[in-house]
């Protein structure tokens, strides 16, 4: 296995970077924390934008973070086809940056929801979900007050037609329903990818499902997809010679 080198971006107010570094350690990966004011990601195999409250989430979630200096490097890395994962606040930042379509609005019930949540894999492709199968269920933590995915109807139709709705909130038997939806997201959407498929944003926290003792390891199941994806990239193998 090629041990992935992952750069985890830290904004002022980010809170999940250490959990990502821990999950990376469990997987045998190398994780490097990159402060938002830096402009060099350090030649990683993948980039993670973790959860938290970047810049206090003032104005809108992710609105200030998208202008942090490091985001120019993240955009260039993604434009080059590099794998980028945005979880929770990281998803919100990617949407504000225009790297993913749509926005995340206040939960429809106004509660901050912190819970275990069933997800269904609807598009098992790309670096972050390619190791899974369509219909696979993942049990991951969610922890957010503003996770209601919104885009106009035409955009939602286009996302579905292009298999870019990666994950949906479901019941334990895999059914999309209002009761399974923790925040009022359009069409039960929990995660979407960009057009090229190398950027994934999702509200749940895969990095917090990395130890059986504290609830499960479905996050590791998901993240391991990256290993297989990288093994199929000639450029990565060459870089290691």
């Amino acid at each position: 296995m090629i041990a992935p080198r992952v750069s985890v971006v830290v904004f002022p107010g980010t809170w999940s970077e250490r959990d990502f570094a821990h999950a990376a350690g469990v997987l045998g990966w190398e994780a490097r924390l990159v402060w938002h004011a830096e402009t060099d990601l350090g030649a990683p195999d993948a980039v993670v934008l973790p959860g938290g409250f970047a810049h206090g989430d003032h104005l809108r979630t992710g609105a200030i973070a998208r202008f942090s200096p490091v985001m120019r490097a993240v955009e260039a890395f993604a434009a080059d086809g590099g794998p980028v994962l945005g979880s929770c606040n990281g998803f919100q930042v990617l949407c504000e940056a225009g790297m993913l379509p749509g926005v995340l609005l206040r939960n429809d019930h106004l509660e901050f929801r912190c819970d275990w949540q069933w997800l269904r894999v609807d598009a098992p492709t790309g670096p972050w979900l390619g190791g899974l199968a369509a219909g696979d269920l993942l049990r991951l933590p969610i922890s957010h007050g503003e996770g209601r995915y919104h885009a106009d109807e035409a955009t939602l139709d286009a996302l579905e037609a292009a298999d870019r709705v990666a994950l949906r909130y479901v019941t334990a038997d895999g059914t999309v329903s209002a009761e399974a939806n923790p925040n009022g997201s359009a069409r039960g959407i929990a995660g979407v990818t960009n057009e090229r498929g190398n950027v994934l944003g999702l509200m749940p926290h895969p990095e917090r499902a990395a130890e059986r003792e504290i609830g499960g390891i479905d996050g590791l199941r998901m993240l391991r997809s990256l290993e297989r994806w990288l093994a199929d990239q000639p450029a990565v193998a060459e870089r290691r010679l």
Partner: peptide
């Protein structure tokens, strides 16, 4: 550019 997100 910043104060409003035209998507929403």
């Amino acid at each position: 550019r910043l104060l409003a997100n035209p998507v929403m």
